[in-house]
Design a protein around this nucleic acid. Structure first.
Lengths: 355, 355
DNA sequence: CTGAAAGCGCTTACAG
DNA sequence: CTGAAAGCGCTTACAG
């Protein structure tokens, strides 16, 4: 493996000069620089990033800590959250890191299982900074990172902490887009299938739902706003079942995410209610689940790749300017129209389903 | 940040002794060892893994190179492959690496876009070894890694290369499980919705399909074996459509993966054919797509987490014994019964759909 | 069983 | 603009 010394010898200069060239220092004469660059190419020299890190006190690596709800047995059923959301965010992070010559380390971490601890990524000093992807569930992690003065940013649908760099979405905006579209399609009333109240976003959503309904002069009934117990398909299935059995007959449903939408759709399928011919459904977040749903799910895309990319950029900025003002980036929401909504007027009111 | 020197001072020994303790050397007296361990705990000392690496010539990090088909615009529609498969494999890798005190670096890499190159993970010497997840599409990468004598293993549904450590699945076994089950459920003929012929596994599957059919005395007709053009939902949709329009009326479908199964199911849904009441469907690979499908997809689970875990273990073994015989691990297949198959006798032969 | 010394591959003041 | 020297935090023979 060629070292900086080999390059120096080959180019007939000193190690320091080679180092300066590698680090793009302006202190090197153009001729010398060329010579060195040529030597590097000739010998196939690749700087050892860890050696660089040792002297420069940095690792050239950034970490991605994917928050996990809790370690559980690997399950292959309905409620499995494979972390579609995280995966998309990570793609964005990856692009940004590669572009900036950083290596990307990753680790799953559950702050509930490890209270008061930080991911090994940070405790073992493997990275210069870390992106917390998803909800840490426990605020301890954030506090700990803060007190360690370890550079970090947060990324996730609902990730917002005062005074911390964050890249997140605006669930309210998503609801607005959905409601606007449903109103446009002629619906006068919408069932809101919300996430659990333990998520801050459930309130943002509710607010947006109510104000959107008012704006479009849609009817709002308390029974038409339901919070699922968990953010899972089976929770949504149960909720939908309960609604149906209570005689609630929505012609349009707005779900807080794809998992919930699919859970509800499963119940409808079993009841032989057609989507969208009898009930239209809009999802949120837009993972591949939406694209592969049957029928394909019309959904609010919150650009998670962009979210990840921005998060990485925020972290890199933070590394360079440790005292800069924290920034909150909000990814734009966009309605992706697929096939789970049709105009209200075109719905078939089969077998008197709708009241 | 405490260094090994601080520990030495605190414990009243030399740096070398501390180092020996950290590395579990048997050359240290128990008393000294205790003293050092206590010092480490007291000072909250964490060894700098990169400094260790510099002297020991290792990084303590392993890499995961996720093969990407080609860089394309981020799309949110039917054909988006979010890499569900890779994600599950990575979970398994993660567990194994954490257990073995390795850090996990990751990178997406497309060998088609970068012929003759290797992931930066390896070219920049960021890791001691790399796990190639998924199909490299181009054999050049494998050759290159080999010629560099860079430690690597392969992991993926269809990842098998002679003379290389691999963790993969056995698609034939999957087909057998599916066919056995369908036969058991009373089906006398099955439509095989196979992956493109460009995948080696398409032949393994075909073989197993034919021999299973023979074993169960099921009928086999050439038109009932179809290869999709791509491994995507829309390809499967098109194929299903073509079959249907050609008058082919399967009562049971065996699909080469979840994406294909869902593509076919979408066509059936649009045609108002009920799954499983009129057509039963079995998938393969079993991602969260299966669990969230409508109806929930009965599918062959190939234990991708285990695959990843084994791949990591194989790599760690390879690091320790560079000349050991290559091992091929085959993850077991298991049928996960959900709701997309019912006994043939219970199917409704509505409106004379089935010939 | 323990300590002093050299070295891993780099960066960074510091002279010149 | 370039080179000699010290140092980053560790490991590893080598003495003792």
């Amino acid at each position: 493996m060629a070292t900086i010394f080999d390059v120096a010898k080959y180019a007939g200069v000193s190690k320091s000069t080679v180092s300066l060239v590698i680090n793009n220092s302006p202190l090197v004469a153009e001729t010398t620089r060329r010579k060195v660059l040529q030597a590097i190419a000739d010998i196939h020299y690749v700087p050892n990033s860890y050696a660089r890190g040792l002297s420069a006190n940095s690792t050239n690596c950034l970490g991605v800590a994917v928050m996990a709800e809790q370690t559980q047995e690997i399950s292959y059923h309905f409620d499995q959250h494979v972390g579609l959301c995280s995966y998309n965010i990570m793609s964005g992070i990856h692009s940004a890191l590669m572009e900036n010559q950083y290596g990307m380390m990753m680790e799953r971490f559950c702050s509930v299982d490890h209270p008061g601890e930080v991911p090994e990524l940070v405790s073992k000093h493997r990275v210069d900074g870390v992106i917390i992807v998803g909800s840490p569930y426990d605020h301890g992690l954030i506090e700990k990172l803060r007190s360690m003065r370890f550079p970090f940013v947060m990324a996730g649908v609902d990730s917002f902490v005062e005074g911390v760099d964050c890249a997140s979405a605006d669930p309210g905006e998503g609801v607005r887009l959905g409601m606007d579209y449903l109103s446009e399609q002629g619906y006068r009333e919408v069932l809101l299938l919300n996430c659990p109240r333990s998520f801050h976003s459930s309130y943002t959503r509710l607010d947006a739902y109510i104000s959107s309904a008012a704006r479009h002069q849609m009817r709002v009934r308390p029974e038409w706003v339901v919070n699922c117990e968990h953010n899972t398909g089976s929770s949504a299935y149960q909720r939908m079942k309960a609604c149906w059995e209570a005689g609630i007959r929505p012609r349009a449903i707005l779900a807080a995410n794809g998992h919930l939408a699919l859970g509800a759709m499963r119940y409808l399928y079993e009841q032989r209610i057609r989507v969208p011919e009898e009930v239209s459904v809009i999802g949120y977040e837009d993972s591949s689940l939406s694209g592969y749903a049957i029928p394909a799910l019309t959904s609010v895309n919150i650009h998670k790749e962009l979210m990840g990319q921005k998060a990485a950029e925020l972290l890199i900025r933070r590394l360079k300017q440790p005292n800069a003002e924290p920034i909150q980036f909000i990814a734009p929401a966009e309605l992706v129209i697929r096939n789970s909504v049709i105009p209200a007027a075109e719905q078939t009111l089969q077998s008197g389903i709708h009241a």
